[in-house]
Design a protein around this nucleic acid. Structure first.
Length: 438
DNA sequence: AAAAAAT
């Protein structure tokens, strides 16, 4: 079944066709007619299911009737991260090219003046992260009383990030006559409470289990030693020995994003980095370069784990096992999209045991291992593998590390017989790379 | 235990 049976306008269908889409995804097929009928929606869906177009398309047609008034947006879309907000804005631009809708993007890290100017002129579509929107609300720059459609996207992630009180406050400022669309990958209690409170007889649409990963992704687990040099060397080895057209490398910590990105750059890789401490402008530029194929590798924090839509990422590397098992699904879900083949490699060290166990438990199956000779952690000598008998009782930390003999000197040495030259982060870093390190 | 988001 094609898009033409969903009730969308001719102009919109033309834009969809031009974008290269011929068949709606399940959530689009179910949501679009319902949204056009003015129904509230509760969509249980992950990113990558075509969720964004399931609300942007019908919204464009609904909003094409009528005109925006100053400071009173006609629709509001809340997103948890700035990048997602920007991505939704791109979506409106792509599909709304044959309509003359006005739009504003209200996210942090960007100057207020331009945003205010747009608001003053009146916008049909307002896309925002909660913090910056509340800021504008408090300054009296925007009123929500004219809102016709509200979208709360990634509600469970809003919860994780502590945005639920903000979202609730924003919802409470809405006029009574309002069409609301909520999307969430999972339905934790707090999100359920919110949807019960604000949705009116919603149509519930559930697509694909949030615990499943695409079948098109080949997943591998790679056991490596804990020290950073070995991990970085293992990562480089994986990149070199696989046909990585376009890869993303996830680290758990921002500081490691920085270190890994620099190290890869020193080793001659085409690489960019993205995390929440970088200026918004840099984040946008790096993402744009990556999407344009000007950068082969993107080292990222979990800011990029969810929803990032780059169509042909071939490889995802987890430099660390994610602390939240669900993040694994989101991270590797950046590859193998739209039926394409994708590969993921997850580095794991003995220190990750707890997180790895939690991850495997959630997956309900093992991740096939790929042996990487020369990078593995040395077998613990002189004692048999620790019997992990856990009956729930907490053992006192038995005589903390007799390994205080792990002297400074040995830590600085390569832990393996490696004939490659050791390239440290010291003298070999070119000046241009050091510039932003101040 | 860390990341994200308002300044």
């Amino acid at each position: 079944m094609g898009f033409e049976f969903l009730g969308l306008s001719e102009q919109l269908l033309a834009a969809v066709e031009e974008a290269g889409y011929t068949e709606p995804t399940p959530i689009q097929a179910k949501a679009i007619p319902a949204v056009l009928q003015g129904k509230d929606i509760l969509g249980i869906a992950q990113t990558g299911t075509g969720k964004t177009a399931s609300f942007t398309l019908p919204m464009i047609d609904i909003l094409s009737q009528g005109r925006a008034r100053a400071r009173m947006p006609r629709s509001l879309i809340l997103e948890p991260t700035r990048e997602l907000a920007a991505q939704v804005a791109e979506n409106f631009e792509k599909y709304g090219k044959n309509h003359k809708l006005t739009m504003a993007l209200l996210i942090g890290g960007v100057a207020f003046a331009e945003q205010e100017k747009l608001l003053d002129r009146g916008v049909d579509v307002l896309i925002a992260t909660p913090g910056r929107l509340l800021d504008h609300l408090e300054r009296g720059k925007v009123m929500l009383t004219g809102t016709e459609i509200l979208v709360v996207d990634e509600a469970d992630r809003m919860l994780d990030m502590g945005f639920i009180p903000d979202v609730e406050k924003i919802c409470s400022l809405m006029p009574p006559r309002l069409q609301s669309l909520f999307f969430s990958a999972t339905m934790p209690k707090e999100v359920k409470r919110l949807t019960d409170k604000f949705l009116k007889d919603p149509k519930e649409i559930t697509v694909s289990s949030p615990k499943s990963t695409a079948q098109t992704i080949t997943q591998k687990l790679v056991r490596v030693a804990s020290d950073p040099k070995t991990k970085r060397a293992a990562l480089r080895h994986l990149i070199k020995t696989n046909d990585v057209k376009n890869g993303i490398i996830f680290c758990n910590r921002k500081v490691d994003v920085k270190i890994v990105a620099k190290s890869l750059a020193v080793h001659g890789f085409s690489v960019g980095e993205i995390h929440g401490d970088l200026p918004q402008e840099t984040r946008m530029q790096t993402l744009a370069k990556y999407k344009a194929g000007e950068i082969q590798l993107l080292v990222a924090s979990d800011v990029a784990a969810r929803g990032l839509d780059v169509s042909d990422i071939t490889h995802v590397f987890n430099y660390d096992v994610p602390n939240n098992p669900e993040d694994y699904i989101h991270r590797i879900g950046r590859t193998g999209r739209a039926g394409r083949e994708g590969w993921s490699f997850t580095l794991t060290t003995p220190r990750d045991k707890k997180y790895l166990d939690a991850l495997l438990k959630m997956l309900g199956k093992d991740i096939p291992e790929e042996k990487l000779e020369g990078f593995e952690a040395p077998e613990p000598r002189g004692r048999k593998p620790r019997q992990q008998k856990d009956d729930g009782a907490k053992q006192p930390p038995a005589e903390k590390k007799s390994s205080s003999r792990r002297s400074r000197g040995s830590r600085d040495r390569e832990p393996r017989g490696d004939d490659k030259p050791v390239v440290g982060m010291g003298d070999h870093v070119p000046a241009f790379l050091m510039r932003d390190a101040k």
